[in-house]
């Protein structure tokens, strides 16, 4: 029997050695998202603020652009993927699918609720903007990059950790030889 066990172990070891290793491509955006996710864990999520805390907090001034946006009605239309109408489990699963299979969602319109965060890459002198979406258990956060044309940071953007709603079309761009996917927004509002 020992021989059989040894034989089984040898076969399994061979299968193990045959497995191939592949590292994920180096992504500056992914590093920024990871950084945001790490930071987010150390703060109370905006959606989870205790009622007393929320009541005690002074009313924050809305940025100029957001005020402007709320006064000028944004054209409403049916989006292809409305994450604001889904439950947390489906939101997490859908965002995961968008992140892992972005080509399938390219050109589709989507609407997302989450909190705003931003990161700056000094080497590229570029700022990236994200809508970060926590899952039902608030342990797994996912970020989608978005770009809003005609806005300047920080004046035309909300404060980080502010709950926002982003609507737009999934598009892609190339940076340093890699394709990156983002939401080309036509609506960015605080919620």
């Amino acid at each position: 029997m020992k021989r059989k066990i040894m034989f089984t172990a040898a076969i399994l070891s061979a299968a193990l050695l045959c497995s191939c290793s592949q590292n994920a491509p180096d992504s500056k955006q992914q590093a920024l998202i990871n950084e945001i996710v790490s930071d987010a864990k150390s703060v109370t999520l905006a959606t989870e603020k205790p009622a007393e805390e929320a009541a005690a907090a002074p009313e924050r001034e809305t940025t100029a652009s957001l005020k402007k946006e709320s006064s000028e009605p944004v054209a409403d239309y049916d989006v292809d993927i409305d994450l604001t109408e889904m439950n947390p489990t489906m939101i997490y699963a859908t965002v995961y699918d968008i992140v892992t299979e972005p080509e399938q969602y390219l050109g589709k319109t989507l609407k997302v609720n989450g909190f705003f965060d931003t990161g700056y890459d000094e080497s590229l002198d570029t700022r990236y903007y994200f809508v970060v979406i926590p899952d039902a258990t608030a342990c797994c956060l996912q970020g989608l990059e978005f770009k809003a044309d005609g806005r300047n940071y920080p004046d035309d953007y909300p404060e980080t950790r502010t709950d926002i709603c982003v609507r737009g079309t999934l598009d892609k761009y190339n940076e340093l030889g890699n394709d990156y996917y983002y939401i080309k927004t036509d609506m960015l509002v605080e919620t």
Binding site: T89, M90, Y92, A93, Y96, D97, A136, T137, C139, C140
Partner: peptide, 11 residues
């Protein structure tokens, strides 16, 4: 995710 499966079946 690993301990409770969270949403892994949907991913």
């Amino acid at each position: 995710t690993t301990l409770f499966g969270s949403t892994s079946i949907l991913t």
